[in-house]
Design a binder for these strands. Sequence first.
DNA 1: GATATTAATCGTAATATTGCAATGTACTTA
DNA 2: TAAGTACATTGCAATATTACGATTAATATC
Lengths: 116, 116
Amino acid sequence: MYLLSKYMGLAKTEIFTDLQNEIALYAKVFGHPARVSILQHLFKIDTCVCGDLVNEIGLAQPTISQHLKELKNLGLIQGTVEGTSVCYCIHKENWTKMKEVMFKFLDQDLPKADCC
Amino acid sequence: MYLLSKYMGLAKTEIFTDLQNEIALYAKVFGHPARVSILQHLFKIDTCVCGDLVNEIGLAQPTISQHLKELKNLGLIQGTVEGTSVCYCIHKENWTKMKEVMFKFLDQDLPKADCC
DNA sequence: GATATTAATCGTAATATTGCAATGTACTTA
DNA sequence: TAAGTACATTGCAATATTACGATTAATATC
C-alpha cells in the first residue's frame, strides 16, 4: 500500500540523534573515492592547490567542481578566488572538529569478551 | 551524446587507488545514521545483541536487516544464529583494521601555513 | 504436524548520487 | 572591447540507496 512512500530512498534523519546524523554526514562525504583523492592531494601538497585538481584526478571539470562543492558545504575545505582560478585548502579548524567527532565514534572501547 | 552513459551514477572506482576505494567503502557504510546507531548500540551494550535492534531503532525489520547485511559484508560486525534469533556484535579484529585505515586518513598533518 | 517467532529475502517505489555536455560567469589580457 | 581562461551551474541520463510490505526460511513450542 506504500502509505509512507514519501520517505523511500530518503534517510529518516528525524529518528536519529544529532550526533548520529553528524557522523553520517561526515562519513558520507568521505564515501566517494574522488573526494578522498581530493583531500589526500590537499594534504600532500601541504598548501593551497590552485587549478590543477582536474588534471590530478581523472574526472571531468564539472564533476570535480561538484565534489569540491560538497566538501566546501561541510566546511572541510575552503576556496579563495585568485585571479581566474580558485585556490583550495583544508579548513584546519573544521577538519580538527570533524576529526574529534569521528575519532570518538571509531575509537570506542571494544567489548572484552568474545560474545559470538 | 552521452557515449559514456554506462558510467553515470556509478563511481569510477578504477581510476582511484585501492586505498582510496577502501577508505570510501568504509566511510560509505558509516554514511547512514541507522548504521551509526546500530554500531553505537553494539558498543554500548558491550556484548552481543540478540534480536532487539528493531525495537531499539525506529525502522522496519527488513530495513534493519538490510543495514546489518551491509555492515556484515564489510566485516565490521558478525552474527551467530541463536535459536530463532541472531546475535550480533562488533568484529573486533576487522574493526581495528578499519580504524587504522581511517585514522591514517583523518589524522594527516595539517599544513603549517595559512594559505588561503 | 500445526503454530508461533525471528530474521532474511524479494519486489517495488521513491529519492539520492554520480558523471558529463552545454552553458554561464568572472576575470585577465591582448 | 574582444578573446581566452578557469571555474560554477544547469540539465539530464544512469545507477545507487533507502524503506517497507509481502513472503520465505528456519527454528522453537505446543
